[in-house]
């Protein structure tokens, strides 16, 4: 049934001055992620010059390390971007990643008994993605059909995926036998780490989906006004289920990459990364109220998180400060979003 909404009188128009200031603020807010990244890089560069007489940004080793640092939180954040744009959230991605990492390792070991490591790799990757679909689908059904709030549904799945991942791993890490997995995970092609190249390919697919397909357009509409989407005949239920599967798949990729990189699967692989991934999305300009966000923004957001983390290690700060820094950045980003929203009203 359609609900008749209370009608409010429009607010009086802001004066010219206030409007101009607001426009500047809006521009600033739109580019805040780029600006923040630039400032961070400049700060660490300055530190490097003053403290070591060296360079931070122009050192290829640093660039490569930051790129590799970015991969995992970014992969989780890519799917999360879709979910957050739709007005939801997926708290389960960290342990979906762990589950996927463990299953990939087990299946690779099992398949490797055949002696064909190429085939084992394919089977293991398929299994890693396949197992990720399970929590994603359940999340989707809970949220779309049973009307469980995303925060609660995916928090429950966080617990379930975590438990199952640890059970499958028997409480420890699962080392991968045989070298192909590790060789790909740590190898390079044309001087670029394979995992970074693969991540770029996934980025392209996700960007295409979000910004150029009807599905992406529908996700924005659902986040902007779900009633408008329903009225336009969009199948919001299926789109929502697909969202959480997509998010889980992108976490599954992160799990597979983890196993490839460390030649071992671990249930806790994604545990510390959940916060980073949500940080990347909101720093990148997505609103937790839904309706806005981009893949480009999320990439910048993930780079910011990685630069903070890597940079703090680089300048020899206690590593635990990373959590503080990322947490603070999340809160500030959400505040900026809140203020922007308020200013519009």
């Amino acid at each position: 049934m359609l609900v008749e909404k209370k009608i409010t009188k429009p607010a009086p128009l802001a004066g010219g001055e206030a409007r101009k200031a607001f426009r500047w603020l809006a521009v600033l807010a739109a580019f805040r992620a780029w600006l923040f990244l630039a400032i961070l890089l400049a700060a660490f560069e300055l530190w490097a010059r003053v403290a070591y007489g060296g360079t931070f940004v122009f050192n290829p080793l640093n660039v490569k390390s930051i790129a590799l640092f970015t991969v995992t939180p970014l992969l989780l954040a890519l799917g999360q971007t879709f979910v957050i744009i739709s007005g939801g959230i997926d708290l389960s991605v960290g342990f979906t990643m762990g589950l996927s990492a463990v299953v990939t390792a087990h299946v690779y070991n099992w398949a490797a008994q055949s002696g064909n490591s190429g085939l084992s790799l394919v089977v293991a990757v398929a299994a890693g993605l396949g197992i990720a679909v399970v929590p994603g689908l359940i999340n989707g059904l809970l949220i779309a059909d049973l009307r469980v709030p995303p925060f609660i549904g995916t928090l429950g799945m966080y617990g379930v995926a975590r438990g199952v991942a640890f059970l499958l791993a028997k409480g420890t890490t699962v080392p991968v036998q045989g070298g192909l997995m590790g060789a790909i995970g740590n190898g390079e092609t044309l001087g670029f780490p394979n995992l970074v190249l693969l991540t770029i390919a996934i980025i392209l697919v996700m960007h295409y989906l979000l910004s150029h397909t009807r599905y992406g357009q529908h996700i924005y509409a659902i986040g902007g006004n779900v009633n408008a989407a329903l009225r336009a005949g969009i199948n919001v239920r299926n789109a929502t289920i697909a969202l959480y599967i997509l998010s889980a798949l992108s976490a599954g990729c992160a799990g597979i990459f983890y196993t490839a990189k460390f030649s071992a699967g671990a249930a806790q692989a994604g545990e510390p990364v959940l916060l980073d991934s949500i940080a990347a999305v909101v720093i990148g300009g997505a609103s937790l109220f839904g309706g806005s966000g981009t893949i480009i923004g999320t990439i910048i957001g993930a780079l910011i998180v990685a630069v903070i983390q890597y940079g703090l290690v680089f300048v020899n700060v206690e590593p635990f400060w990373q959590f503080v820094a990322v947490g603070v950045v999340i809160i500030i980003s959400v505040l900026v979003d809140q203020i922007q929203k308020g200013a519009r009203k």
Binding site: L2, K5, I7, R214, Q217, H218, Y220, A221, G223, G224, N225, N227, A228, A229, R231, A232, G233, I234, G291, S292
Partner: peptide, 22 residues
């Protein structure tokens, strides 16, 4: 035409007119 239900105000004119029939 309802006051609040018809429009996704994060999309542009084209996105709204063609919503669901892009």
């Amino acid at each position: 035409i309802y006051q609040d239900l018809a429009i996704a105000d994060n999309l542009d004119v084209g996105g709204n007119v063609f919503l669901g029939r892009e």
